[in-house]
Design a protein around this nucleic acid. Structure first.
Lengths: 343, 343
DNA sequence: TTGTAGGCGTTATCAA
DNA sequence: TTGATAACGCCTACAA
């Protein structure tokens, strides 16, 4: 029971494989009747061409890939949707690929480029430190999106993100202005190069700028080793630990909305009213945060504009109209119900 | 700038392509030193083999695919994780593919089987009505998981799901026992063959069994046409419409937890207290529901067991130990904070 | 309008 | 231990 191929169809139709191929690909130079008959047979047999063979032949594809690391983070959903849409408008097709936590995204990109003859890549999520040598192997334009970037530290590759340090600082500034003095932080990867670190840095700067001092007891990091760390559960665990540690605090800055949601639940379980007893704020601006009770105060990343900017930049690079560059977008401090004055 | 191939490596190493291939695939019949040298060159050049060519040659692969329709529904996250784990235990690799709302999952499966020489398929999400002819083209074992099945209506293909009708009926039963008489329902695809329809059927049966009558004013369906319909936003819209329609109701049965979350927010915005003024219950048992405020009352599908059962059945079918069959798993009524007695 | 033949990059078989 | 060569399934000159 070998798979049926274009040859079998040809035999069944009493014609050659090229004719079948022509029918399959809507070539003009084919007799309409022949085409009809061939398509009929194809429908009857349920023949499906082998993509590997097609891709192997291809030298060019008008396709770009979206490589997403951390698919469960709902923050990416909207961005993916918009990007797919914009890519389609450019008459390209999208290849959406999820990268497991233990996979190297650049390696995946390298393979995919060869396999599918991609024209460009967008990296969504993941760390922003990569093996430079590997990255240089990538012969097609690529853009890191929402991965974070240090302002004033230009890199040779394209990057679209918000200024995580500055935006986090703004958020913590706001909390301090509300009278909070003991502000905890919960997050992931606070100390290794990642968006987590950038957001932690913003927290530190705000604390320092106001002459407060950093209290190690108010810092909680997501447990390492788990495959998916940006989860509500982790937010719950970290906040719970913090709240029951005996340390005093009137606010918690969470480096992601998913953490903030877990933190709110932990606070509620500890009998704390939000925001009366404790203010809890997030980062990202995921839509769930706007439907949570209380609605989450957060740093809203401009997902639509970031998605647009990413795709525009990518296609500009593809058509050689622009060089790789870092584009920093302004985020928005969204004050909602989960934060307020220190009582 | 043609892509570098195995031939280039061979030339660079002064050996033949077969030797390079052997080095690449850890064949035993190769001189360790030759191997060393070749691997060295490969590392230096950053050579990556072309998967299309590899797949084209392959006749067999020890891989199964997970085709997920509706990736944004967090309900699938856990299941995917468990399935991937179990597949790995079986020494198979997983190919995770997301199917767009407008794609035909069986068609995607057909293509993927040819392209990657799959040994099996799991369909997650999507409708449960498919073109039988197409399904029969699929020459490898496949299992529909969590898609819903009508009890007592056996199909020729494998299916792992909960009894959506019975479980929904249980939930609505519970609401009626709590004294509710005007129970609204919000959901997706209530009238076309889908899990939505099954859950609606359960609602109808419970209503009828208690001698109540179905009130069309209390039925709200998600707007058609949108690509992603299982969203919190849709839950919010439907509940909002219902609450402001003037119709009386003391409870809302939502056919999915994501809808219930949106509904809770809508109720809160309308100034209703949950569950004092209105009970809101969901279906699925997603983890977010347990962190929502109030915690969601729901029908918890046994995701772990369903994932296990799905993979076990699939591999049993692959090894011809079992025939396709429908496996119905028991769900659990989880009473939490979002529901209570009618006041 | 149709058919023949060569090649895409890799692996496997068979000789050497 | 290595090398030449024939597939894998499809597309596309080029020839008819």
């Amino acid at each position: 029971m070998a798979e049926t191929t274009i040859k079998d169809i040809a035999r069944l139709c009493g014609c050659s494989v090229s004719t079948v191929s022509r029918a399959l690909n809507n070539h003009p130079d084919i007799n309409p009747e022949t085409r009809q008959k061939i398509m009929q047979v194809i429908r009857e047999t349920g023949f499906v061409p082998n993509n590997s063979a097609i891709n192997l032949k291809k030298t060019d594809s008008k396709a770009v890939a979206l490589l997403v690391k951390g698919i469960t983070n709902p923050f990416f959903n909207t961005m993916i949707k918009i990007m797919e849409h914009r890519i389609e408008e450019n008459h390209y097709s999208t290849i959406l690929r999820h990268v497991e936590a233990d996979e190297e995204e650049v390696q995946v990109a390298l393979e995919l480029v060869k396999e599918r003859r991609l024209r460009g890549i967008v990296f969504l999520g993941g760390n922003f430190v990569h093996d430079d040598a590997m990255l240089r192997q990538l012969k097609v334009p690529f853009v890191f999106s929402t991965i974070g970037a240090l302002q004033g530290e230009p890199s040779w590759y394209a990057n679209v993100a918000v200024d995580d340090v500055a935006e986090s600082e703004k958020m913590v500034d706001y909390l301090i202005e509300q009278g909070h003095r003991s502000i905890a932080i919960i997050g992931d990867n606070l100390l290794t190069k990642s968006v987590g670190q950038l957001r932690f840095e913003g927290y530190r700067r705000a604390i320092a700028a106001h002459g407060l001092k950093l209290n190690p007891d108010l810092i909680e990091e997501a447990p390492q080793g788990e495959s998916e760390r940006y989860t509500i559960e982790n937010g719950y665990r970290m906040a719970w630990k913090l709240i029951h540690s005996g340390a005093e605090m009137t606010a918690i800055f969470c480096t992601a909305d998913v953490f903030a949601i877990g933190a709110c639940r932990a606070a509620a379980d500890a009998g704390l009213a939000i925001p009366k007893d404790i203010s809890i704020v997030g980062y990202d601006g995921i839509s769930t945060g706007d439907f949570y009770i209380p609605r989450l105060t957060t740093v809203r990343q401009p997902v639509e504009q970031m998605a647009e900017a990413t795709i525009t930049l990518l296609f500009d690079m593809i058509s050689k109209k622009r060089q790789p560059q870092t584009i920093l977008m302004p985020a928005e401090l969204v004050i909602r119900e989960s934060s307020g004055c220190r009582k």
